[in-house]
Every structure is written in C-alpha cells, then in structure tokens.
Amino acid sequence: MSDRLDVRKTYKLYVGGKFPRSESGRSYEVTDHKGGFLANAAQASRKDARDAVVAARAAFAGWSGATAYNRGQVLYRVAEVMEGRRAQFTADVAAVEGLTARRADDVVSAAIDRWVWYAGWADKLAQVLGSSNPVAGPFFNFSTPEPTGVVAAVAPQDSSLLGLVSVVAAIIVSGNTVVVLTSFERPVPAISLSEVLATSDVPGGVVNVLTGSTSEVAPWLASHMDVNALDLAGVDDDALRTSLEVAAADNVKRVRRADTSDWSADPGLSRVRAFVETKTVWHPIGA
C-alpha cells in the first residue's frame, strides 16, 4: 500500500441525468456497518423530490416510446458497465451491509445478473403479458402492456444494491420512469449505481435517485399528483405504509405494498406486472 492520501468522493443526488446536491443544502452522515465514517450523503428534501418527478415525467415520453429492443440493450449496457466496476460495488456493499468480500462479491454478481435478466424481458413482455382476444363479433381485438408512467419507489432498507436493482429494473424495463428513494442508512451503493446509470445510455430522468429520510420524503412522493404508482418495497413501518397508501389514493396511484422479498430468489414477473397497464384496442373487420 502506498501512503498516498486518497481522493474522496462527494456523494450527491441523481436527478434528470445530473448530480445535484440537495437544494436544501443538507447532508447526513453515513457510516459503515461498524459505525465508521463513510460519507456525507445528500439529504433530499420535498423540493428535490418534486424536481425528480418533473425529470421523470419529462423522460417518460422518450423512454416509453423507445423500442423494446432499445430498452433491452440499454438495460444490458448497465450490466456491462457495472461489471467493469465490480471492485467499487463490492467494496460499497461490504462496507454498508457488513458482508465478507466474498459474500459482497456474490451480491454484486447477482445484481449485475438481474440487469441482464430484465434486459432480456424488455422485448418479451408484450407477448407474455399481452393477448389477442377472440371476441364474439367481426372485430380485431388485442391487448398490450404499457408502462403506467412515473413510479415512485422506496428501495429496500437492507438489500442496498441487489434489492435496489431488483426494484428499479422491474419498473423501467416496461418503459416507466422512476424516482427511487434509497436505503437511508445504506445509500452508498445506490450512489455508485447512479454513476453507472449516467454512463450507460440510460436517458437522463429515466432513473432518479434520492438519498435521505424515507419518512420525510416518501409522503411527498405518495401525494404527488403527477406520480402514477408507488413501490413500497422498503417501507417496513406499518403506520408509514398506511399513511402513504392513504395519500396515494388521491390520484388513484397503483400501489405495490412492501413484501418480504428474498432478493436473491427468482423475481418472476409480479413486480413488472404491478407497473403496467393493459390497453385493449378494437377495430372492425370488414370491407
């Protein structure tokens, strides 16, 4: 080891493809699992959340309008870029989750593989979730899945990388854009992921990453009238969960409740299905 003094990183939010500090100017101290200083993470505010929703809405038309093939390639590109930064992610995960280097490496592998898994789904969802419908009349009728819109997600508190990736990838693969609130105590892998997203062809605004307090920021996302759906994966407090669901009803948000997901298990399609709409189109058959 050299005795060179290392260059430390400023940890920021990721909104609209840029890395701003919190407009509030706030930050909070993040420690590793042993309690040692790790970083000062930006502490997102209501305004940051709203800015992120604006960015996500602005990105929605382009991302949902991209071809499924293109979205699949972009998700795959995320995996490629992550693969090149394995060491960074392994160190992050080991530090915040208290895993051995070997276990942390397994988690990083699983997270990268999860991007690959979802990448392959992009151009298959319409066939698996859609249908041609044999109506009793002279009509051509088909149903296709379409993205719900802007999804606000609370990432898992414990599984700081694999859980986060599982939530985000399932939301964006179908064409949604997302504002994700990271694990409060373990935000560092999410910030590293932001840096990957920024350099892997994911259009700015498709994924917006906020670090900060769930109980402070999530209610503003849950009540935001330009958010179409909520993923409460990381909300384990019953009272908070209830209040978020109540707020979500104001514009009939689709809500995926917290679950005790084993993030290493086969994810299935239920997370994807939670954030797609089914559109059915009719047209007469005739002369």
Partner: peptide, 14 residues
C-alpha cells in the same frame, strides 16, 4: 381504444 367503433364489450376482452 375503439377504432372505427365504440362501446363494444366482450368477455374475452380486458
């Protein structure tokens, strides 16, 4: 979306 028709319903159609 009903194209060149409207208010059609069928049990096979979501």
């Amino acid at each position: 979306v009903w194209a060149n028709t409207f208010n059609q319903f069928d049990p096979t159609s979501p």
